[in-house]
Amino acid sequence: MMGHYIALSLLAVLGLGMIFIFYLTVKGRTIERRFVFLYIVFTVSLPLFVKMKPPIQVSPEVQQVVETITSLSPGAKVLISCDFDPPSAPELQPMLVAFTKYALKHDLKLIFMGLWPLGPSQANRGLRLALADTIIAAKNLTYGVDYVNLGFQSGNEFVIQAMGGSFKSMFPQDDRRIPYDSIPLLNGVVNYRQIDLVMNFSAGKPGTIEWIQNAVDRYQVKLSAGNTAVQAPQVYPYLRAGQVRGLMGGMSGAAEFELALNEKGKASSFILSQMFSHLAVMLFVIVGNVAWLMTRKKK
């Protein structure tokens, strides 16, 4: 609790610091860029110590993901493509963990894969966290029966296309080198026709757009997606066209998703940091513009 109050006091000091920066800028004094970096580091780090929960409202696009998931009945098979790597984990891993927890609690059958080499490792990390949950641990879930990780396959969107014909042709064995035919969960799973939903966690290419082009529009696959904030604006047109059923964009999308599923995790605890960092960036933009306008006036 002590850290909470110290962090809050320091954040107040940062607020006063911004007023001082504004004053210096108006006076025509240049701010050292390293000072700006340091300011951002403090703005991002201090809220991590604060035990305060900012209000989060679930957006319609995240609600659509939630409705798609909750409409699945127990035993439904979900293909989860983890198309990201550790650099994008702060945004996408919380979505993956929240989804995996919810899915395993509700007896959905999960088939993980990755079009990015480190995607399956991220899936394993998510699975480890989900399996540690007391409710899920009590279910004594078995690898190969309740969930499976098919691993990485190179070939980008051509893998998605080929899976429309046969999953086995792309994944003759899983991540643990168990042959496809020996995995009980995959018995009868030939292609997308036996899959109830594809969840895609994407940080770029290949990712959600490739899944839409090669699986949704070609094989009428039901797809929901979680994207990094950089990628999300590119996916919105597909959301409007109904090609993707719901979209989680960036850390705020992840926090909304955690809230909607009642699976609080990392994203919910990061959201205050993000709120303060956005505030700092906005204030710096305003200060910069005011300074520019004042110099123009003087000239």
């Binding site: 580091v41 991002v44 991590l48 702060p90 904030a229 960036g250 993000q274 960092s277």
Partner: peptide
Amino acid sequence: MSRMSLLIG
């Protein structure tokens, strides 16, 4: 938002 998320991570 994305870059800040990386820094937060």
